[in-house]
């Protein structure tokens, strides 16, 4: 890559993060800084709005809801994907080919068109306005099942045979052998589920009216509509919602980006 191209690439990259930077500038700016013409581009590190968000409002409560929902969803997706992937790749009961197709075909269903019947269903099974309703439907994923099935198929079968001869039960084998060996697939699943679960908006918008279960994304949207001009507090709260994503991205961006390209390399250690 030539020098000029590197500089250009860096500049384009900066344009992409400029809005995020402006969020920080306004959140940590002076009162009324958002209305300044021309805009300020450097934060003045006034933590007033952030302190209000952290101490005097319910934002932390919504963050806690998001954490609970995201963490539980991740554990659920990992469990169901691991078990199903293992069964489909190594146990292969009769009809597992058809079952596999059925499970991953979920990815082809247009989510936007299902939201109405899903609402009716959630109402019927009394899962509206509950953590269960925000978590359970996402505790299985076609992509996760696909990933783990691939990973198990790439694993030498003799690991499982050795464990069986040693008298290890299936769960012992999965816990002590498969999970450590399939760490890359586990990591990918955690990262992808984290991003999609933390950023979930439309589902809670429709399924959760009560504040006690709402995640931060939903609370932000309510607040945004009610107090449009309170930019400092809004951007501070938004920063709170983005922060976990930035931290995870900072640690694992290469892994996250690679998992997008549909790369199946490195499923097994």
């Amino acid at each position: 890559m030539s020098m000029a191209r590197r500089i250009l690439a860096g500049a384009v990259g900066l344009v992409f993060v400029l809005p995020l930077w402006m969020d920080l500038v306004i959140a940590l700016g002076k009162r009324g800084g958002a209305f300044h013409i021309p805009p300020t581009f450097w934060p003045s590190f006034h933590f007033g709005a952030m302190t209000v968000v952290l101490t005097q409002t319910h934002w932390l409560h919504y963050v806690a809801n998001s954490v609970l929902i995201t963490a539980t969803t991740i554990i659920g997706v990992l469990t169901t994907s691991l078990l199903a992937g293992y069964a489909l790749a190594q146990l292969r009961p009769r009809g597992s080919g058809a079952i596999f197709v059925l499970l991953i075909a979920v990815m082809m269903l247009p989510q936007q068109a299902l939201i109405i019947p899903q609402y009716v269903l959630m109402k019927d099974v009394h899962l509206l306005n509950s953590f269960g309703g925000l978590i359970l439907p996402f505790t299985a994923s076609g992509a996760g099942i696909f990933l783990f099935r691939q990973a198990f198929m790439h694993m030498p079968p003799s690991y499982r045979e050795a464990a069986r001869v040693d008298g290890a039960s299936t769960l012992y084998y999965l816990w002590r052998v498969a999970i450590p060996l399939l760490r890359p697939a586990v990591a990918t699943t955690i990262l992808v589920t984290f991003v999609s679960s933390w950023n979930m908006f439309q589902w809670p918008l429709i399924m959760a009216d009560t504040k006690s279960v709402q995640p931060i994304e939903l609370a932000l949207s309510h607040y945004m509509q009610a107090f449009e001009a309170n930019w400092r507090e809004l951007t501070s709260a938004a920063l709170l919602a983005m922060l976990p994503v930035f931290m995870v991205y900072g640690f694992a961006q290469r892994h996250i980006i690679r998992s997008v390209g549909g790369g199946t390399s490195g499923l097994v250690e």
Partner: peptide
């Protein structure tokens, strides 16, 4: 990076 950010949070800015 923008792709992994939450939509509502970034819509605010």
């Amino acid at each position: 990076l923008p792709h992994v950010t939450p939509v509502i949070a970034t819509s605010i800015i």
